[in-house]
Amino acid sequence: SLEEAIRRAEEALRKGQTFEYAGIRVTTQEALEKFRKWAEKQK
């Protein structure tokens, strides 16, 4: 689910890792916010 993907992205960010979902790379807090906004639109 998208909620699960967001949780995994947050977890990866805390560990300093890269999270990738549907071709979207989350490597920074800013990218995480963009990913969250994108995920909201997918619902």
Score class of each variant (00 low, 15 high):
Phe35Tyr: 02
Ala5Tyr: 09
Glu40Ser: 07
Lys37Phe: 07
Arg36Pro: 01
Glu3Thr: 11
Gly16Ile: 02
Gly23Met: 02
Glu30Trp: 05
Ala12Pro: 00
Phe19Lys: 01
Glu40Lys: 07
Glu33Ile: 08
Gly16Phe: 04
Lys34Asn: 13
Arg25Tyr: 12
Thr28His: 04
Ile6Asp: 01
Gln29Ile: 13
Ala22Phe: 10
Ala5Gly: 03
Ile6Ser: 03
Gln42Glu: 09
Ala39Cys: 14
Thr28Ile: 03
Thr28Tyr: 02
Ile6Trp: 04
Gln42Met: 14
Ala39Asp: 01
Thr18Ala: 14
Trp38Gln: 03
Arg25Lys: 14
Leu32Ser: 00
Thr27Ser: 14
Lys41Thr: 14
Ala5Asp: 03
Leu32Ala: 01
Lys41Gly: 14
Thr27Trp: 05
Thr18Glu: 15
Ala5Phe: 11
Leu2His: 05
Leu13His: 02
Ala12Trp: 04
Leu13Pro: 00
Gly16Glu: 04
Lys34Gln: 14
Ala22Leu: 13
Arg8Phe: 09
Lys43Pro: 09
Leu13Asn: 01
Phe35Asp: 01
Gln42Asn: 08
Glu11Pro: 00
Phe35Val: 02
Ile6Pro: 01
Glu4Cys: 15
Ile6Ala: 03
Gly23Asn: 07
Ala39Gly: 04
Arg14Lys: 13
Phe19Ile: 02
Leu32Tyr: 05
Glu4Ala: 12
Glu10Ile: 08
Thr27Leu: 06
Leu32Thr: 00
Ile24Trp: 15
Thr18Lys: 09
Thr28Met: 05
Glu10Pro: 01
Ala5His: 07
Arg7Val: 09
Ala39Tyr: 08
Gln17Asn: 11
Glu3Leu: 10
Ala31Thr: 12
Leu2Cys: 10
Ile6Gly: 01
Trp38Tyr: 05
Glu40Gln: 08
Glu30Met: 07
Arg25Asp: 07
Arg14Tyr: 07
Val26Ala: 02
Gly23Ile: 01
Gln42Lys: 10
Gln29Leu: 14
Trp38Gly: 01
Ala39Pro: 00
Leu32His: 00
Glu33Asn: 08
Phe19Ser: 01
Glu33His: 05
Arg8Trp: 09
Ala39Gln: 03
Lys43Tyr: 12
Arg8Leu: 13
Ala12Ser: 09
Arg14Phe: 07
Glu33Gly: 04
Leu32Arg: 00
Ser1Asp: 14
Thr18Tyr: 15
Glu20Pro: 00
Ile24Asn: 04
Glu20Trp: 06
Ala31Gln: 15
Glu11Ala: 09
Tyr21Glu: 05
Arg7Ser: 11
Ala39Ser: 04
Ala12Ile: 05
Ala22Pro: 03
Ala31Leu: 09
Ile24Pro: 00
Lys15Ala: 13
Gln42Leu: 13
Glu20Gln: 06
Lys15Pro: 01
Gly16Ala: 03
Lys34Tyr: 15
Thr27Gln: 10
Thr27Lys: 08
Thr27His: 10
Gln42Tyr: 10
Phe35His: 01
Ala39Trp: 08
Arg14Ala: 15
Lys34Arg: 14
Lys41His: 12
Ala31Pro: 00
Lys41Met: 14
Glu30Leu: 08
Lys34Trp: 15
Arg7Leu: 12
Glu3Phe: 06
Gln42Gly: 06
Glu4Pro: 03
Gln29Val: 13
Leu2Asn: 02
Gln17Ile: 13
Gln17Met: 13
Lys34Val: 12
Arg8Cys: 15
Ala31Glu: 15
Glu33Ala: 08
Phe35Cys: 05
Glu4Met: 10
Arg25Asn: 11
Ala31Lys: 05
Arg14Gly: 10
Glu20Tyr: 07
Thr28Phe: 03
Leu13Val: 13
Leu13Cys: 04
Leu2Ile: 12
Ala9Leu: 04
Thr18Cys: 14
Gln42Val: 14
Ala5Thr: 09
Glu3His: 10
Gln17Trp: 07
Ala5Cys: 15
Ile6Glu: 02
Lys41Asp: 14
Lys41Trp: 13
Leu2Thr: 04
Lys34Gly: 09
Phe19Pro: 02
Lys41Leu: 14
Glu20Phe: 05
Leu2Trp: 15
Ile24Met: 10
Glu3Asn: 10
Arg36Asp: 01
Leu32Asn: 00
Lys34Ile: 13
Glu40Cys: 09
Arg8Gln: 14
Thr27Pro: 05
Glu20Arg: 02
Thr18Gly: 10
Ala31Ser: 14
Glu30Asp: 11
Glu11Val: 07
Lys37Trp: 09
Ile24Ala: 02
Ala22Val: 06
Gln42Cys: 14
Val26Arg: 00
Lys41Ala: 15
Gly16Leu: 03
Arg14Met: 11
Glu4Ile: 10
Leu2Gln: 02
Tyr21His: 07
Val26Gln: 00
Ala9Pro: 00
Arg14Trp: 06
Arg36Met: 13
Lys34Ala: 15
Glu11Trp: 01
Gly16Lys: 05
Arg7Lys: 13
Ala12Val: 04
Ala5Asn: 04
Ile24Ser: 02
Ala9Tyr: 02
Ala22Glu: 13
Thr18Asn: 13
Glu11Lys: 05
Glu30Lys: 08
Ala9Gln: 00
Arg7His: 11
Ile6Phe: 07
Lys37Val: 10
Ala9Phe: 05
Lys37Gln: 14
Ala12Met: 09
Thr18Ser: 13
Ser1Gln: 12
Ile24Gln: 07
Phe35Arg: 00
Lys15Arg: 13
Gln29Arg: 09
Arg36Gln: 10
Glu10Asn: 05
Arg7Tyr: 09
Arg14Thr: 09
Phe19Arg: 00
Ala5Glu: 07
Arg14Ile: 09
Gln29Phe: 12
Ala12Thr: 06
Ala5Lys: 05
Glu4Leu: 10
Lys43Ser: 12
Glu40Pro: 01
Val26Trp: 04
Ala31Met: 12
Glu3Arg: 10
Glu11Cys: 09
Gly23Ser: 06
Lys37Thr: 08
Glu33Ser: 06
Phe35Leu: 11
Leu2Phe: 10
Ala39Met: 08
Arg7Gly: 08
Trp38Arg: 02
Phe35Pro: 00
Ala5Pro: 03
Gly16Met: 04
Glu3Cys: 11
Phe19Asn: 03
Arg7Asn: 08
Glu40Trp: 05
Ala5Gln: 09
Ile24Phe: 14
Thr27Glu: 15
Leu2Ala: 04
Trp38His: 03
Lys43Glu: 11
